[in-house]
Design a protein around this nucleic acid. Structure first.
Lengths: 340, 340
DNA sequence: TTGTAGGCGTTATCAG
DNA sequence: CTGATAACGCCTACAA
């Protein structure tokens, strides 16, 4: 039973059909005139434009995306690849980008790299063949791979800084500086940073910022590694954090922080008395937990909107590759405070 | 400065190029043979297949999606439209569907209807022109509109039951029954249900299930309306819930429940002593709040996987429209318990 | 302003 | 098994 008859009969003529030829016939003009009437406003007389439009509406015509893409090379589709779709921090990025794309008449393709550099590269390649450009949110690929993609079609990266590639990066130093200064003022003298994936450019930047801020405000800093930047990963490093001797911990992201928070509660470690916990991102739920999670907020939505906006500009040839910076800010909540 | 020169020079020949003609030339065969060698295994001699493959690899050939879609009508793209992308309950649906699609070599298009039936319809139309089929997660459109789309190309709906359309629906009666029975056993006698959007088919089903379970286990039930199925919406209805006289509340979704939980805490209403709160979905964060949110868990990931799997089957003509059911289960946590 | 004709990259139908 | 050749639906010089 290899190939069976189509179970559902779809009207192959009436609805799906309707090409510019049908319209041309109905309106009594040449197909090329239909094409112009529908896409090049002003290059056709008002009278015929109306006739064509009416015919198109009557046949409820819908341009074939692929047929259009063939001669022009443009698909009006833009790809977005996120490092890990289960990470809530990407929700707002997705939504911001999607909204922006839709408002410009573009359709967004979404894919998940699942924290793997290789699947990311594969997906990117596939998408690039179907889209006019792609946005990489927190890419795990190497700079070289990204530059190669960018040589093909426009690429915009979020949370990464690559020379020659349009990028949207958060100014992490600001928010982290605020957090560390606040910690110092509260009496902390030694803090830890729990890092994220090794391929994460952002994790490195955040550690740099923590170290710098530590030096500036006179706090001891040390770095711990995590297996995975998830709630579960956070629970796993929690014991190490306690043993580290630090009285406060800054995390690569909120997921890790939430995991640590939870594990500390489970093991009856007082937060923030014995340990202050600070995350990064301000994801959904960060303010819902008890104690509410202190965090360095990232304007994810702005990143998505900014990246897509930059992409659209590049596509319209009105902008060269640029570097957009978005601000971060420390949001103190219940999980951080003076050491007991 | 309408049209300016392209800032970034992309190699229009070397990389993006490479058509089957180039391969044909390099391999010394006809383009049509290349096409066959690359897509119809067995319809070409092993020797030439290898030569073609080698040439393709050398030129790092990548088939043009759009050119391929033209003669075949198939794009290997599948759309997914979610009712509200900011709702975490869709995360797992998205991920499940995306994973399934990717493993079958399909690219997923994602769009957000932002809780609007009209934008949903618009987006669906646009997607349908570019994809082989679409999945509607918690659609807000009318049955008629969906059936119309389905007459054009395969449609699969999640959280909705429409005759003739492949659908994935949760068996809400099970989980809700468990929750209500548990509430009854703990001594509750009067419970409230906070409804979701009026266009939400699921909300109606959940209310039905609550009522039925109430009758079965001898509990009084009443229904309250919410403005929006969000955390904020939950905070707004919280006072009404308290005034309703019920000692337990079941919500259309976790977002509402979380909002209610938070507002009750802010107004010093004891949970669960004075009010038990139960959500629906078991979204990310539900077990992270304090008290942890009791909820009726939905296997979102399975819904996404199931929907995409069904879509792929329909596309392969091996299945007719069907109705898949996924189970729900009551997950008791700290936010519900015996009334004081 | 409008029609004609050629081409975009693939697949599919026929011959050979 | 392989080579021509005609679609697929649309766009765009070029010509009228």
């Amino acid at each position: 039973m290899a190939a069976m008859m189509n179970y559902v009969q779809r009207e192959s003529k009436s609805k799906s059909g309707a090409t510019i030829y049908d319209i041309a016939k109905l309106a009594g003009v040449n197909p090329s005139t239909v094409s112009r009437a529908l896409t090049k406003p002003g290059r056709v007389s008002e009278a015929t434009r109306e006739r064509v439009e009416a015919a198109a509406a009557q046949l409820n015509y819908r341009a074939n995306t692929h047929a259009r893409a063939l001669p022009t090379g443009r698909t009006r589709m833009l790809g977005l690849i996120v490092a890990d779709i289960t990470n809530p921090s990407f929700f707002d990025v997705i939504r911001g980008a999607e909204t922006m794309a839709a408002s410009a008449g573009y359709t967004m393709l979404l894919a998940d790299a699942a924290e793997s550099a290789t699947t990311e590269a594969t997906i990117a390649r596939r998408m690039l063949s179907a889209a006019d450009g792609i946005i990489l949110a927190s890419p795990r690929m190497s700079d070289a791979e990204i530059l190669e993609l960018n040589a093909d079609k426009p690429v915009v990266v979020i949370n990464r800084d690559i020379a020659g590639v349009t990028s949207v990066v958060p100014n992490v130093a600001k928010g982290i500086g605020e957090a560390v200064r606040s910690l110092g003022a509260e009496g902390h003298t030694s803090i830890a940073y729990v890092a994220g994936p090794r391929q994460s450019w952002m994790s490195g930047r955040r550690w740099d910022a923590v170290r710098e801020a530590g030096e500036r405000y006179g706090l001891d800093t040390r770095r711990l590694d995590s297996e995975r930047p998830t709630v579960e990963g956070g629970r796993q490093v929690a014991p190490l954090v306690v043993q580290s001797g630090a009285s406060a911990v800054l995390c690569y992201n909120d997921l890790l922080a939430l995991g640590i928070l939870r594990e500390l509660q489970a093991t009856r470690v007082d937060v923030p008395g014995r340990m202050s916990v600070i995350g990064f991102d301000d994801i959904f739920g960060a303010d819902l937990v008890t104690p509410a999670l202190s965090t360095v907020r990232l304007p994810h939505r702005d990143s998505g909107v900014g990246a897509m906006g930059a992409m659209l500009k590049v596509l319209d040839d009105v902008a060269r590759p640029a570097r957009l910076e978005v601000d971060t800010e420390f949001v103190p909540r219940g999980s951080s405070g003076a050491p007991a």
